[in-house]
Amino acid sequence: MEQRFQLWGRLLTESKHHIEAVYDLLGVKLTPDDYHGESTYQPVLADIADELTRCGLARISDGALCVFLDGFTGRDDKPVPLIVRKSDGAYGYDATDLATIRYRAQKLKGDRLIYVVGAPQSQHFQLIFAAARTADWVGPATETDHVAFGSVLGEDGKILRTRAGASLKLTDLLHEGVQRAAAIVADREDLTDAERQEIARAVGIGAVKYADLSTDRIKDYVFDWDRMLAMDGNTAVYLQYALARIRSILRRADTVPQSGSAVMLTEPAERDLALVLARFGDTVHTALDTLQPHRIATYLFELATAFSAFYEQCPVLKSDGDVRASRLVLAAHTATVLERGLDLLGIEAPQRL
């Protein structure tokens, strides 16, 4: 038994190293101090079972300790149980998920508990949430959300896999994205090696992130490198390029008026851009309320498109006086919003592209 625990510990350590490597690629700021694996809750599982039994929620069924809740049925209208303790005395996912939500609600005092797990687990988490509320672990003021998401498909319409039929690793996709992006800028003589590496990393990883975040999360989507790395259309690189272009405009300007300076909206394209800019705050709040990041992505694409039309119809650097100043303010504000929006999606924006 001791050897098994030692082996388990080695595997756990290796898993953490892999997770941290993925976090580094994605720019995720979590550290080992921020996450608790299932094994963390092993010492309290017996207490979970006892507490649920004492409050009358759990009872023995076919030798297992189960929680049955009204309104949760499966095939043939049979009640669906949460199996707190199996008939052999072991504990599974139901028990650890119950222990987790109790910890997050009572110890961490979380006011909104968000579970990002695939759509097939919807009923399971509805059961977990309902049981936790019935046990008074989660109060009425605490929100519980299951953020379900669809599947990533290959061009054949099936779950994305390797040619050999194995599941693809996220790290492999991220590295491939960087390699493909590196090929795009490999011949750019106006860039240093460091700039090419920075762009390749930002564009490649941004493409993978944006493909996932720009789609309504509940829907399946087809993973297509050509589409994801296209310089036009609703892609990360299109937004990154739009921001880089605006930054170039601002660098070439002698001075850029401060935010809050007067803006004149005399042309339709100026007005259209200003109206899109005004919606940023509402878009972010809606995305947070609904837990739908694709709303931010859709907005950023609309903003970049509006700026492109504005730039084509309203000369910026070639204008004079107050008109020039006004258009520079619009350009600077657009850059700020694009940068903040991409940052909310966890996507880097290289200075040049």
Rank of each mutant, 00 (worst) to 15 (best):
L30V: 03
N234I: 03
Q42C: 02
P268C: 02
A230W: 03
Q240S: 10
A230V: 07
E270W: 00
H18G: 01
T298M: 03
L153P: 13
L344C: 05
R217Y: 08
A278C: 00
W225F: 03
W8V: 02
R85K: 15
V323M: 03
F223A: 06
T283V: 09
T162P: 09
E189I: 01
H36T: 03
S15D: 14
W225E: 07
E143G: 01
L170M: 09
Q240W: 10
R4I: 07
V22H: 09
V222F: 07
A164W: 14
G56A: 13
A349W: 06
R217D: 15
Q258S: 14
L277T: 00
P43Q: 10
W225I: 00
A105M: 01
Q240L: 14
L127E: 14
A64F: 11
R247W: 12
D156W: 08
A349C: 15
I199A: 08
R279I: 00
A21F: 00
L288C: 05
R352K: 10
A194D: 14
V222H: 10
S15C: 04
S319C: 08
Y93L: 06
F149I: 02
V178R: 10
H285A: 14
A331F: 02
A274H: 03
E20D: 06
L173S: 05
A278W: 01
R295L: 11
L213K: 03
V237E: 15
I296N: 01
V185R: 06
A242P: 10
V208C: 14
R247V: 01
L300Y: 04
V152E: 14
E348G: 07
V256M: 04
D50E: 15
A274N: 04
T40G: 09
Q121D: 12
V208Y: 05
E20M: 13
A132H: 02
A49N: 07
T144N: 05
R201M: 06
M1A: 08
L288S: 06
L344H: 05
I159M: 12
A287E: 06
A164F: 04
R102D: 07
V185M: 10
F307G: 02
T40D: 12
I114E: 11
E189N: 09
K29F: 04
S87E: 11
Y221N: 15
T298V: 04
L69A: 05
A135E: 13
V316R: 06
Y241F: 10
V28N: 11
S151K: 13
D289E: 13
A325S: 11
Q240F: 08
K158L: 14
S61W: 13
I83V: 15
I218Y: 12
G321Y: 01
L275K: 03
A297T: 04
S308K: 08
R352L: 07
T334C: 11
G63L: 12
G9Y: 04
Q121M: 08
T334S: 05
R227S: 11
F223N: 09
F301I: 02
G63V: 06
G157M: 08
R75T: 07
D190W: 04
A207P: 15
A253N: 10
T336L: 09
A21P: 01
A182C: 01
I60T: 12
L65P: 09
D190T: 07
I83C: 14
D145Q: 13
V147K: 08
P350R: 08
Y241S: 08
Q313R: 03
G150Q: 13
V147H: 12
T134M: 09
Q240C: 05
I199Q: 12
W137L: 06
V276W: 01
L275T: 02
I296L: 10
Y91V: 03
P315H: 00
L243S: 15
L277I: 01
